[in-house]
């Protein structure tokens, strides 16, 4: 049995998440990944915004910062630049990360600022009652999309890759074992890493779209996911509506804190002029 109690603030339980919610599965995977990566608790800052996913920091024993809606990555930017030794993990939801917080998401990726962002993608705004988010698939319902969403959804991982992230992986709450590895890789990567995790929201998403229970959602993830290696050999039509999981992107690029350090050294040596 994994020693979860080493990392949990047990006096803060029971948690506020609904029965069947995916948040706990992701939180546990994150803790297993942290244990494996051997990063000490004191050097981890876990930052979140607003939403169901963003309640994670309250339950875990790190330096934890629960901020304003959409701004977790910007707060984390300040922490990281002020104290580069901190290992920054941002937990965010689909609405928090790519709707209200979309600007910080793409710019942190562009800078390649060293942090690991875990996006719990449940296709919906859970905390406020099931409103449609930019991740809601076209045609699917939310409490503000009663006739089905007519907006195309964002590909969160694709957005991070396009913006400049150096490590991007996607998993689901069904593929919890693989998820540990992706988060661990993300933590060990020097640069901006994104782990997108599809998470069931039985209370709103599954109910409003008549999908059934959380188990039905997990089964749907299982049956519709394709490993990225297999997806490379498939046609566009074959991949339509499928979830491509695995390490989608892993490249090397200069990291922002390192680059800033070099700038300071250059200026101090008098080598930088303007």
């Amino acid at each position: 049995m994994f020693p979860y109690e080493k990392y949990l603030r047990l006096d803060k339980f029971p948690h506020i998440w609904c029965t069947g919610c995916g948040c706990g599965i992701i939180m546990k995977a994150m803790l297993r990944a942290i244990e494996k990566s051997k990063i000490p608790k004191d050097s981890i800052a876990l930052v979140s915004g607003i939403g169901c996913s963003s309640r994670t920091p309250g339950y875990v024993d790190f330096n934890t910062l629960h901020t304003t809606h959409g701004r977790a990555i910007a707060f984390a930017t300040g922490l990281k630049l002020a104290k580069p030794k901190l290992k920054i993990i941002v937990v965010s939801g689909d609405g928090d990360a790519i709707a209200i917080g979309g600007n910080h998401f793409i710019h942190a990726a562009r800078r390649n600022l060293d942090m690991t962002v875990i996006v719990y993608n449940n296709y919906i705004y859970g905390m406020t009652g099931g409103q449609a988010s930019p991740a809601t698939p076209i045609g699917k319902k939310g409490s503000t999309a009663p006739y089905g969403s007519i907006e195309p959804s964002f590909d969160i991982s694709g957005l991070a890759i396009a913006a400049g992230a150096t490590f991007v992986a996607r998993s689901t709450c069904y593929h919890a074992v693989q998820l540990d590895k992706y988060i661990e890789k993300g933590l060990l990567k020097k640069g901006f890493s994104l782990i997108e995790v599809l998470a069931p929201c039985p209370t709103y998403y599954a109910r409003l779209n008549r999908i059934g229970t959380s188990v039905d959602m997990l089964r749907w993830y299982k049956e519709n996911s394709i490993p990225v290696e297999a997806a490379k050999k498939m046609s566009r039509k074959e991949k339509d509506g499928k979830i491509i999981i695995g390490v989608l992107h892993n490249i090397e690029r200069v990291e922002f804190c390192e680059e800033y350090k070099k700038l300071v050294e250059r200026v101090k040596r008098g080598q930088a002029t303007f």
Binding site: V47, L65, T67, T68, G70, R71, A74, F75, A76, T77, G78, L79, K80, L81, A82, K83, L86, N103, H104, H107
Partner: peptide, 15 residues
Amino acid sequence: LGSMATIIGASLAGM
């Protein structure tokens, strides 16, 4: 919005 958030983060780290 990000500027304000970032200076709060930095101050929390002690600067």
